[in-house]
């Protein structure tokens, strides 16, 4: 198992009168090559959860295991863990700081004590992976567009050669085209390089389209952990948690209710299209 959380709990301000339980008894296993979506409303505990994956937060109870080893055992190499499990924060472009794009991306590998040539090679590869054109490598990161800056920031984490890439709302504030591009490239990282992806998102439409497993966090607990289809079938319970299903889910339920024999589990536009066309063809026969 690549990543595993065993009975993990986290309490902010433990042993004070301000104690707040952010996570309660979480059990979770993530295997290599998965594309996992994480959803939950603001304050549900999802950010606290993802910071446990690379040891930025230490559970107040329970164990976090990376490749079978407890990351909080004595003498465990946390720096190696953080290279293996890369975390891209929200608005990561705010963390760019170097004078040119390539040097910024080389910062991570340099800290891994790699040779200058290797740092450079890693950075160039990472930038190409996120679809940034070579002509921008020497540009100042601050002259790039919002979407480009964000890709540079993701490349900075990719250059560390992580096995797991965790992204906290990587598309916030991007236009629809920029959103599709970034998510498409993230999917490619999984498909072509086998990098495990954990994607935190507020967009049900995006997780329906890209993730093959969906974890719903509510009140510090895992409410659902299943395929997006299976999770969205519980759309009424999701609403009670301050979440929603994709627009398509609601549409399919209404159509079904109105007598069109469609698949209520369709969650994407293309699935809905197929199902509706099939139902319409069926209706003509009668």
């Amino acid at each position: 198992m690549l990543l595993e959380l065993k009975n993990v709990s986290y309490t902010y301000n433990k042993d004070t009168s301000f104690a707040v339980n952010a996570l309660e008894n979480i059990n979770l296993q993530i295997s290599e090559g998965e594309f996992v979506g994480v959803i939950g409303h603001t304050g549900s505990g999802k950010s606290t959860l993802i910071q446990h994956f690379n040891g930025l937060m230490k559970p107040t109870d329970g164990q976090v295991l990376y490749m079978g080893e407890d990351i909080w055992q004595e003498k465990y190499d946390l720096q190696a863990l953080r290279s293996g499990v890369g975390l891209v924060f929200q608005y990561p472009e705010n963390q760019l700081f170097e004078t040119d794009v390539l040097t910024d991306v080389m910062f991570g590998p340099k800290n891994q004590k790699l040779s200058p040539e290797e740092c450079r090679e890693r950075a160039v590869n990472a930038l190409r992976r996120v679809g940034l054109k070579d002509k921008y490598f020497t540009a100042s990161p601050f002259d790039l567009s919002g979407g480009q800056k964000r890709r540079v920031a993701i490349a900075g984490v990719l250059a560390m050669n992580p096995k797991v890439l965790i992204l906290d709302e990587p598309t916030a504030g991007l236009d629809p085209h920029g959103r599709d591009e970034i998510l498409g490239q993230i999917r490619k990282l999984r498909d072509e390089m086998g990098i495990t992806i954990i994607l935190v998102s507020h967009s049900m439409e995006d997780v329906a389209e890209y993730a093959d497993r969906l974890i719903v966090v509510n009140d510090g607990k895992i409410a659902f952990d299943d395929t997006p289809k299976a999770v969205f079938a519980h759309y009424k319970e999701l609403e009670a948690m301050g979440l929603a299903a994709p627009q398509i889910t609601y549409l399919m339920h209404e159509l079904k209710e109105r007598g069109l024999d469609v698949d209520i589990n369709a969650v994407t536009v293309s699935e809905a299209k197929k199902s509706i066309e099939k139902a319409l063809a069926g209706r003509k026969k009668h």
Binding site: D175, P176, L251, A272, K273, I276
Partner: peptide, 14 residues
């Protein structure tokens, strides 16, 4: 580089 709402896109595709 823009998009339409999912419902509009589905109607358009149909």
């Amino acid at each position: 580089h823009l998009d339409v709402p999912q419902i509009t896109e589905l109607a358009y595709e149909l």
